[in-house]
Design a protein around this nucleic acid. Structure first.
Lengths: 201, 201
DNA sequence: GCAGCTTCTTGCACTCACTGCAAACTATTA
DNA sequence: TAATAGTTTGCAGTGAGTGCAAGAAGCTGC
């Protein structure tokens, strides 16, 4: 892991990580709604005010969101081979993130935690929505479609839905790995969720 | 409109409506982030504490969420003819809600407001998630599928995604009516969002 | 019409999230 | 080592949201 820059940079990264760690640990221990920012800050040995210099919301710290993920996703999207179908690109993007989270060994626990707490889910959605907008824009450009067209937006958004469904189902059936559930969802989306659809038959 | 029950009942409905109205009006006027509960309560001529007796979150009042919608949706889902395909049922459910919102004459303004405010969008999603769970359960039962299966959950969730995409697109292109955008999304979901999908080709 | 019950409203005190500001502190750079 | 630029912190303040207990108001039986 590249420890670039001077002491200052390193300290910032350290503090950020310490806050995220403490936040996740405490949230797992006491339930996300019963952790206060004060506790998190104390556990990370900084002041409350400093906490807010790093994370604007309590939930951000617990989610420990890595901005790098979005960056990589956008990059992957832009550099995808021309013949790769859009949902396939999304699939790679999603699995890339999953790989990262898994290697941190917290995919499952964190996923469960997220799905169990409205506030967390909500914050995750917040960032998802922002991400979705950017991913949609990137995908639309890649497909050469106008900004207002439905398909790219729907592909991104439906892929997000598939991920959320996968997490939710994994929570109730932990024996089915998330990847498998995600793949199933993507497969369904790809081929059509309901070929018999026809409200005006 | 049936004014059931005694004075008490009516007053409660009145207060609830007054709060929702004031909340929406003020949110449209000053932007949702610059309205305080105090103002809303004052405009509705009740105390702040009373506000919270009706809505547990400020955003709920602005969304003015009608619990009746979910009820009707579940009812529609349960009583759907056996041969109606699942996404078609969702379509009717969605259009039923749209009709209601339209008749209140606020679909567009409220939709725009919601899409423009993270806090509102999150609250909407939160309630959506709750709704989605119930709708998913109902749909799974109707399809005779086990609770943990992917398809019903994905159908409900993807339909929600289509609605959100429709609102988002409508915001940037107000000339395209929401219904039309919703239909386009449903059509795509039904037939398959990406027939060429195949990460393991 | 009133006593007694239930339900709704309100004020109050409190916790907690979050923000702006200015002072103190610390790495960096010349 | 002195100037500078970035970081941390305390403090004061706003606003959301909750629990509690007292009072107001609708309801019910007489």
């Amino acid at each position: 892991m590249g420890a670039e820059g001077g002491l200052r940079e390193r300290k910032k990264l350290q503090t950020r990580a310490a806050l995220a760690d403490a936040a996740l640990r405490l949230a797992l221990e006491k339930g996300p709604d019963h952790v206060t920012v004060e506790e998190i800050a104390e556990a990370a040995d900084v002041s409350v005010r400093t906490f807010f210099n790093y994370y604007s919301h309590k939930e951000h710290a617990i989610l420990g969101r890595n901005p790098e993920h979005l960056e990589r996703a956008l990059e992957r999207m832009r550099s995808a081979p021309a013949e790769e179908s859009p949902l396939t690109t999304m699939w790679f993007v999603v699995h890339d993130v999953l790989r990262d989270l898994e290697s941190e060994g917290e995919l499952s626990r964190r996923g469960e935690l997220i799905m169990s707490s409205p506030a967390l889910l909500y914050q995750l959605m917040l960032s998802s929505i922002d991400d979705e907008r950017q991913l949609t824009a990137a995908l639309a450009e890649r497909l050469g479609e106008p900004v207002g067209s439905t398909r790219p937006a729907l592909i991104v958004s439906a892929a997000g839905a598939a991920c959320r469904v996968a997490m939710e189902l994994h929570k109730t059936a932990p024996d089915r790995p998330i990847r498998e559930l995600v793949d199933e969802g993507f497969q369904l989306l790809a081929q059509g969720i309901d070929p018999a659809f026809g409200p005006n038959n």
